[in-house]
Design a binder for these strands. Structure first.
Lengths: 147, 147
DNA sequence: TATATTTAGTTCGACATTAAACTAAATAGG
DNA sequence: CCTATTTAGTTTAATGTCGAACTAAATATA
């Protein structure tokens, strides 16, 4: 194993650990039985717009269709989204945010502000966010090269 | 939401996506029914030394005790680790790598070299690994501040 | 048009993971 | 010592996720 290879593994290892620690923090702020994955879908709909098909969301999250069926049915049962039949394609459906869904997404995000602030006392966020452009590059390349 | 907060979310979002894409690549290289989590435990034992208790590994991975019981029993059934009673503590156990376990870890890592090389045609790994020190800082702070 | 293929979503069985209850052993405090 | 508490690991029920089989609708092709 070359030095570069070793460091590449180290890079992805750090990414994995950070992701797990951050997800744990996020998860601990989720109310009664809702999972980060549920929030993520709501967040996606808020940011990129609702009125999209389940398959579109499935592709965005690179997740199996069965998983998305399950996630959407939980969100629907909770009244956070509304699932309507597709106007022109009888096989398909369209997902809309409800007011409750939008409120939940907003509230979930705001619930993290204190944690961000508290971490900011020990961490220089300005320096951290400078990594974003390079991370974006990595993400895009990994994304384009997935099979 | 301030600009900093927005970027902090974006940072963790990029981290999450990269982690998922990288994990998917890794997972697709795992043989017959073995999961990345199984590899991770073997890798941990190779890098930091075996002969440790399940609880030690549990803490290292910040995972529930039940999860580790399950993971270790899979690894043990596959002959990749050996679980022995603890010499001085009747409640505890000690985990050892087998030769098969070491070989598996080695082979799993090497199986990723082609993917790393292929990605290297589109990605400047030298620049990517420069992010490691800052990521380490973030990881350490998150780690120290977990409850 | 009739049939074959593709596409969108659901269902099913398997497994990873979790939290909580549980067992057994070790330790602490009286 | 003896009891209470803590600690290490297992078990159990619930849920997220996956891949594969399945259904139904749309599209391609002949």
């Amino acid at each position: 194993m070359s030095e570069t290879e070793r460091k590449v593994f180290q890079f992805f290892n750090e990414i994995g650990i950070i992701n797990q620690l951050a997800t744990d923090i996020f998860q601990s702020n989720m109310p009664d039985g809702l999972h980060v994955s549920h929030f993520s879908v709501l967040n996606h709909l808020v940011r990129l717009g609702d009125g999209v098909t389940p398959l579109k969301i499935t592709n965005a999250f690179q997740v199996s269709k069965g998983t998305m069926t399950n996630t959407l049915s939980v969100l629907s049962k909770r009244g956070l989204i509304r699932i309507a039949p597709h106007e022109s394609d009888g096989r398909s459906k369209v997902v809309y945010l409800t007011d409750e869904g939008r409120a939940f997404q907003k509230q979930a995000i705001e619930s993290l502000f204190p944690a961000i602030q508290q971490l900011g006392e020990k961490m220089d966020w300005a320096r951290v966010v400078e990594l974003i452009p390079e991370l974006e590059r990595v993400r895009k390349i990994l994304d384009e090269n997935r099979d």
